[in-house]
């Protein structure tokens, strides 16, 4: 059993068995994270470039920690410090990164498809760490890992609530969970639900109470105000009143429902503080699991690099 591609560009390209392989492998790396010495020599001598054109703290830190725990050498190119701001094209930047002879490029970019562009034009393994409003596969994988530790995917009802339109996390999660046999409902105001989202394999509703009814997993998403040029919402307060996840509204979900959020949180907007800090919240567990899942992805893709070289 192995991954078919040497890149991780999106959940769309993964088969259910490949998703299971990544999640199973992550179990082993979760154990490494509980040790006193949280480091294994597995990717010694491999180089990873973390190429983050869009600001990110938690995803980049999570990747960096995963790389360090596998003994890979990591360097960071970030938007503020990169030549990108000086007018260089993506292709030129990519060529320069490739001249450093890395084994992996982890890319976060504001344009959908940027990782795919790099995958076609460079010789190393590309990992998509979020491209525009398209996909964020490692986030969906870590969410799936967190869910699977508590409940099997088959027949699970998952509600994803919030700014679906701008959310690559929502897209990747809908794709992954529907592939694994879960029932997914996305919920948000009409302006923040992209038309045709059902084609990804989910149901869509504008009624929060309907989405939460008997949900086993509730995922709240942040309003990405920085991507909104205006006109999407009458006011943030009204949004919070209609779509904010409160303890009272959560009562419609199953008694053992878990609450997830990819971060960063806007307390009192998409999620009430008491829910984010409550017993059902697995938000911080998601962060911890992210490192193990990213280690698993790097480990499995590293095998694929060698396969290409041997072929």
């Amino acid at each position: 059993m192995r991954l078919r591609s040497r890149h991780l560009l999106g959940i769309a390209g993964l088969e259910p068995e490949e998703i299971r392989l990544i999640l199973d492998t992550a179990e082993s790396f979760a154990e490494v994270g509980t040790r006193e010495i949280k480091k294994v020599p597995t990717l010694r001598g491999k180089t990873v470039v973390n190429f983050f054109v869009e600001p990110s703290t938690r995803t980049r830190s999570s990747f960096e920690l995963a790389e360090k725990r596998l003994s890979a050498d990591a360097i960071n190119f970030t938007a503020a410090s990169s030549s990108f701001l000086k007018g260089e094209t993506l292709l030129d930047t990519a060529r320069n990164l490739e001249a450093l002879v890395p084994d992996f490029i982890v890319i976060r970019h504001s344009e959908a498809g940027a990782p795919h562009f790099l995958a076609r034009r460079t010789g190393c393994s590309i990992i998509n760490a979020g491209d525009g409003a398209h996909e964020h596969p490692t986030q969906a994988l870590l969410d799936a890992y967190t869910i699977r530790r508590r409940k099997p995917f088959e027949g699970l009802k998952v509600a994803i609530v919030g700014d679906i339109l701008h959310s690559r996390v929502a897209r990747s999660n809908v794709l992954l969970l529907s592939k694994m046999g879960s029932e997914v409902v996305v919920c948000g105001p009409p302006t923040l639900l992209p038309p045709g989202i059902e084609r990804l394999g989910c149901r869509a509703t504008h009624q929060l109470d309907e989405a939460l009814e008997r949900a086993d997993v509730v995922m709240a998403l942040r309003l990405q105000l920085e991507r909104m040029s205006g006109g999407y919402l009458p006011s943030v307060r009204e949004y919070a009143r209609l779509f904010g996840l409160t303890a009272e509204r959560l009562q419609r979900a199953t008694p053992d429902a878990i609450v997830m959020h990819p971060g960063p949180l806007n307390r009192g907007v998409e999620i009430a503080g008491e829910v984010a800090d409550g017993a059902r919240s697995v938000i911080l567990e998601q962060v911890t699991n992210g490192v193990a899942v990213r280690m698993a992805v790097l480990y499995l893709l590293a095998g694929e690099i060698e396969r290409e070289a041997a072929a």
Binding site: M1, F29, Y299, G303, E304
Partner: peptide, 23 residues
């Protein structure tokens, strides 16, 4: 003990071995 993370031939193997837990 699962020794796969410590193998000296990982860079020679096309398919990285399936990992199991060390307990």
């Amino acid at each position: 003990l699962d020794i796969n993370l410590y193998r000296d031939d990982l860079s020679l193997i096309a398919d990285h071995p399936i990992l199991r837990r060390t307990e």
